[in-house]
């Protein structure tokens, strides 16, 4: 969707998430909401109507009793690099892959709210504003000025904290540089993760943590076979955990009411 670019440095921002470190504390989810002005849940919101750009799922190995083991899997927009499913379905160019960063951007101001992109996303990483955003009286004072609140009726999703990218760009410009230095820009979830399970960097920079993680034998991406080349790498030394990347298993008849 974008025309020519200056020979700016082309980045491919990506993430690595170490599932062996994630405690499921939810700090990333909360930090994300704070950073991106996502309102608290409307009273009618449920886990299926909520807005959680990053959402931590509790996944178990399907065993019963003491054999049951769980892992926490943070899922955010996987920033697909090829055949990005949501981009070419949007009827009005409200979704695009920024060629300079590889970030899949969603423009709430352009969005019609048709939700076709949500149907297209295999990761369910897109969220619809079912309600107008509402903060308790006074709490709007704590909104982040770098991110515009979205209105009801549009889709939104993780954009690697684009406000922070803007800020980093501006800081670089103030220093007279046109490029962001490695580490000068990290999304809020990365910064907030108390265990450092989430790492962020430029996949083109071989020294960056995600790039290193991408080459690790214990790394995997979700639904890799779809061929969408997601840029979020998960990592776990546990074999069964790596199975979460695969397609769902048919139900065993018992449903957990949670998670």
């Amino acid at each position: 969707m974008i025309a020519a670019n200056k020979p700016n440095k082309i980045a491919r921002y990506g993430m690595s998430i170490d599932l062996d470190r994630c405690t499921g504390c939810g700090a990333c989810m909360v930090a994300c909401a704070v950073e991106n002005n996502v309102p608290p849940a409307h009273e009618g919101a449920t886990a299926r109507k909520g807005i959680t750009w990053i959402r931590v799922f509790k996944v178990d190995n399907g065993e019963e009793g003491p054999a049951r083991r769980s892992v926490f899997v943070p899922v955010l927009c996987q920033q697909c690099g090829e055949d990005t499913p949501c981009v070419h379905v949007c009827p009005q160019q409200a979704v695009e892959v920024d060629p300079a960063t590889g970030i899949v951007g969603q423009m709430p101001e352009r969005c019609l709210g048709c939700r076709y992109c949500m149907a297209a996303c295999p990761y369910h990483a897109r969220f619809f504003n079912w309600w107008d955003p509402q903060w308790p009286a006074g709490m709007e004072k704590t909104l982040n000025p770098d991110v515009a609140p979205r209105m009801r009726g549009v889709v939104e999703k993780c954009n690697f904290c684009h406000g922070r990218w803007h800020a980093a760009k501006e800081r670089a410009a103030a220093a007279g540089k046109s490029e962001i230095e490695a580490g000068a820009y990290v999304p809020a979830c990365v910064e907030s993760c108390p265990t450092g399970a989430i790492r962020f960097g430029d996949l083109k920079d071989a020294a960056s943590e995600p790039a290193v993680a991408a080459k690790d034998a214990h790394s995997f991406r979700l639904l890799e076979k779809l061929g969408t080349e997601p840029k979020i790498y998960y990592h776990s030394k546990r074999d069964w955990v790596r199975q979460v990347a695969a397609a769902p298993k048919p139900p065993n008849g018992k449903e957990n009411a949670r998670g």
């Binding site: 969707m1 070419h88 949007c90 009827p91 009005q92 160019q93 409200a94 352009r110 969005c111 019609l112 709210g113 048709c114 939700r115 619809f128 504003n129 209105m151 009801r152 009726g153 549009v154 889709v155």
Partner: peptide
């Protein structure tokens, strides 16, 4: 069905 009916013309104006 669309969330922002006021923007119905966007599809025509900025078609993908």
């Amino acid at each position: 069905d669309v969330g922002q009916p006021l923007r119905f013309w966007f599809t025509f104006w900025y078609p993908n």
